[in-house]
């Protein structure tokens, strides 16, 4: 096995162009498990933790760009106002030790259907900035995942950053696991309300081969809010609307039975999470 640690982005892209089969490692929270468990023996490891630029974030107007190497711990500490849904999700990731190491780029790169960052990124219509020595491209996050642990990256491509709109309204995230900390999602749900765009965003984790949006739920809720001029009036939401949103969210999922939970439970839990996150987000919107 070879180990390379490029110190600049261009160098990293050059390495990946020359060795497209190389395994990329950042926080190591997924890659090292596979190595320790003897599941994978890649010919080469490319360490991205020495590329300083990768671990920065910046704001350009209303767009927040988060470098792929930014850790969950920093998202919690630094981005809880700019990207609150992502920050709530980050807080549910593993332990402090994991949050100090794991990165948003790594989460995307692993493309697990249970990745905690994915639902809030879907809910905020994030874009994954992808680059290779051939050039760069932007991939809407909902087009990023192509299957369980699979994504659109070409072998020579790396994830550079994620861009999300700076939060314009309340965002929420909730995750079900069978203990009170340190769990992989049985299922999870993210919600983002954008009062400026009159938009509703959702994201569902661990209930389909990939993280997905509940598009019909988004469309129905956004339509009802607009029709009733609710963005303006901020009246309490009608219970039927909330229930409808919850039901549509659950129906969007395509869960399976596995060691962590049954499909029926996941679907049920999603409806509960959708209802609760909507009520929390709407209450926050009413208060502000």
């Amino acid at each position: 096995m070879e180990f390379l640690a490029p110190t600049s982005w261009d160098e990293a892209l050059a390495v990946k162009a020359e060795h497209p089969e190389a395994e990329v490692i950042a926080g190591g929270t997924d890659v090292m498990v596979d190595l320790n468990f003897d599941r994978r023996r890649p010919a080469m490891l490319v360490d991205l933790t020495r590329i300083a630029d990768l671990a920065t974030w910046q704001i350009d107007g209303s767009v927040l760009t988060i470098g792929a190497g930014v850790t969950y711990a920093r998202i919690i500490d630094e981005l809880s106002t700019l990207a609150p849904g992502l920050a709530i999700a980050s807080r549910t990731v593993g332990s402090p030790q994991i949050r100090n190491r794991g990165t948003i780029g790594g989460n995307l790169g692993s493309a697990s259907p249970a990745g905690d960052a994915h639902p809030p990124l879907l809910a905020t219509k994030a874009t994954v900035e992808v680059a290779s020595a051939r050039g760069s491209r932007s991939v809407p996050v909902e087009k990023f995942f192509t299957g369980a642990k699979r994504h659109v990256l070409a072998p020579d491509e790396l994830i550079a950053a994620v861009t999300v709109p700076v939060a314009a309204g309340p965002q929420q995230f909730a995750k079900v696991g069978t203990r009170n900390a340190m769990v992989i999602a049985v299922t999870s749900f993210a919600l983002a309300l954008d009062p400026h765009a009159h938009a509703v965003g959702t994201g569902i984790g661990s209930a389909a081969p990939t993280p997905i949006r509940a598009e019909e739920a988004e469309r129905v809720l956004a339509g009802e809010l607009a029709a009733a001029d609710q963005w303006e009036h901020r009246r309490p939401l009608d219970d039927h609307l909330v229930d409808h949103f919850a039901r549509l969210s659950a129906e969007a999922a395509a869960p399976i039975d596995d060691v962590r939970g049954t499909a029926a439970y996941r679907r049920h839990a999603l409806a509960v999470l959708a209802r609760r996150t909507l009520s929390w987000a709407w209450s926050e919107y009413q208060r502000n």
Partner: peptide, 15 residues
Amino acid sequence: GLLPGGVANTTHGEG
């Protein structure tokens, strides 16, 4: 200082 679901933000008291 915790509710069911613990740190995963599943309830603020509902249910």
